[in-house]
Amino acid sequence: MKLGLVIDMDTCVGCQACAVACKQWNTSGTLGPLTDYDPYGAEPDGVSFNHIRSYEVGEYPNSETVNMPMSCMHCETAECVTVCPTGASYKRESDGIVLVDQDKCMGCNLCAWACPYGARELDEASGTMKKCTLCVDRIYDDELPEQERQPACVLTCPTNARHFGDLDDPESHVSRLVRERGGQQSLPELGYNPVNRYLPPRPKTTASQAKAPKAGLQERLRGWLGKAVTR
């Protein structure tokens, strides 16, 4: 099994609901609390597993806004696990989820340095590294109704831009989405082979602007007068 997320950059509106849902679930989850520093002050700061950033791609007027939610990609070549000196970081053989054993971490930050995506954040209160667990404490919970056994971010997404599933199974919902929509990896050239995929925005239909015919001499003179004469 290769569990991961498929995120639709076409439908994501950048509402930050998944970031809030993530923080809400995980701060009382297995890695919780996700410490806030100065939460009600001028510079609120703290641990968060999910960041949604907005970009403008292309030049105006042919530019578009793209929102990119990012959490742990649960890479197949998880260098964060390779560099960990204590064995606190590990990748589960059964489902590929990358986790940090909070009882073993010594807070050396090397795994965060090795992660190209900024998925790992040090909790200064506990002195340990924390990261997205793919809601491992939700997705296997038999007490929850089956349709709720999904990561909190996926459940909460109002535009259905986030999909969770097994990317090893070619017939799964997420594998089909990747196949049909050309799902791609972030920074594929680094060779980390991230499991999470991004569905690029669909090509937009662009309306071509008709050029106005050149105005006659009288029309241009009137226009010039209108601009030149002030009351």
């Binding site: 970009y55 403008e56 791609v57 292309g58 954040e121 972030s186």
Partner: peptide, 28 residues
């Protein structure tokens, strides 16, 4: 090294950050 285009996966044009959705710094 890698560029912002391969990072966000859109290579059709110049990309720039509009909003990092953070009002202050974080660990990264």
């Amino acid at each position: 090294g890698p560029s912002i285009n391969t990072a966000i996966g859109l290579t059709k044009g110049r990309a720039r950050l509009l909003e990092s959705a953070q009002s202050s710094s974080n660990f990264t």
